[in-house]
Amino acid sequence: MKRLLIAAGGGGDAITAAMVHAALYGPDTPALVLTYAWERLVVDPVPGPRGAADFTGVLTPVPGLHLVTPQAAPKAPAGSLLPRLAAHLRPALGLLDPYGGTLGLARQIETAARWCGADRIDLVDVGGDIVARGDEPTLRSPLGDALALAACAATGIPTTVYVAGPGLDNEVPLPVLMPRLGEPALTLAPEDTDGVLAVFDWHPSEAGAVLVAAARGVRGVCGTRDAPRPLVLDDSARQVHRLTCAEALRLNPLAGALDRCSGLEAAEEASYEVCGFSEIARERRRAATAPAVPRPPAEPGTLLARFGRWERSRLAEGLDYVTTRRITEELALTPLEADGLYRSLRAEAPPRRVPPLWRLADVRGT
């Protein structure tokens, strides 16, 4: 028997699901995490999610269930970090393919539950957009979460929804979010992060990184990319809230609108109706404007000077810490530049790296 967990939005939610699993059942309890291959354009330049046909090397232990292993690989030009995650996370990883809509996802989840011998599901979201109403002005990526929630409900299998690190995805403002969540059910401890900490040396998830930092006792103000406000790392940032599937459905109109959805295009239409936008359409627009030819890397001295100017501006904003992704994207670093800059920062004393975040220059301690 394996525990069955669903990562509501993919990416950072898969990492968070591994942490929640460790906190609930112990890290060595057998488990399967089903997750989307729906990753940021910095990882996958092709807009939208990837399906099973977009990978080589996945395992199919039973029809309808696709396991991602370290030997799997995305087919070019697509990209995916799931095979690398599969090599690092203790739970096994399975692929959620949303192209069949809610009904297709429900069939995949039912198949996984039978294969695992699981009589219930844990649906895990980092941040809280799984209980978004759809009209929040800061909402960016509600569709994957809503599809996962609607699909779990469609299976009829008892499902518990866990929201970890409320507000850490900067999608639903905390004053709006907290009344929807109620009291915390558990608090992540440092040991719950042991199995995922090293992942953030290469994985770009910001909400997951900030959750890990909070669980490990880092306190202060952290800046993430493209966010309306910085995040405060306090005890509430490492808490996990528990809802029933019915409670989450009542809070999420988009999930309700996806009840009998049979395809991803129909799901997009529902997102337009409820939220006024489609995140897949946004990805298409961003992909169309991405630079086609990378520029030559900057010299190390020039790069450090540019980082220094950027850092002073972030200190003026009142930040104590920043994520790797914010540094990389705001400085528009190439992979070679990023590798060189982070090696230089790691060599500084006192240490700049406060795993998995970066400490700005005049902060002392963690």
Rank of each mutant, 00 (worst) to 15 (best):
A8I: 10
P77R: 06
E348I: 04
D320H: 15
L341S: 05
R50F: 08
V354T: 04
A37N: 13
L82K: 08
L303P: 01
T35M: 02
A76M: 03
R364Y: 15
P296G: 04
E329L: 14
G308H: 09
G182N: 07
V126C: 06
I280K: 12
A92G: 06
G26A: 04
G263S: 14
L197F: 00
R284C: 03
T16R: 00
G208Q: 09
P204T: 03
A53Q: 13
Q108A: 04
L186M: 13
L231C: 10
L231T: 10
V126W: 08
C275I: 02
T187Y: 11
R216Q: 13
A255M: 05
L254V: 01
A287C: 00
A288G: 08
R50Q: 11
V199E: 07
F200C: 08
Y272K: 07
V172R: 03
S141A: 15
P137K: 12
R364I: 13
A31V: 01
V46R: 06
R216H: 02
V196A: 02
P297H: 07
L258Y: 09
A118K: 01
T159K: 01
D28E: 15
L59E: 11
A287P: 03
G276V: 06
P253R: 15
A267Q: 01
G340C: 13
R84M: 06
D28Q: 09
R295V: 12
G51R: 00
A31R: 08
D235G: 12
P351Q: 01
E191M: 09
R90M: 00
T35K: 02
E110R: 12
H66Q: 01
L174K: 12
D125T: 13
G301N: 07
V43P: 05
L103P: 07
T302Y: 05
A292D: 14
A113W: 02
V240H: 06
L95G: 02
A209Q: 13
L24M: 15
G167I: 11
E337G: 14
P91V: 00
G101C: 04
R180L: 11
A14F: 06
R238C: 07
P351D: 04
G276P: 07
L168F: 12
S141D: 10
R353A: 12
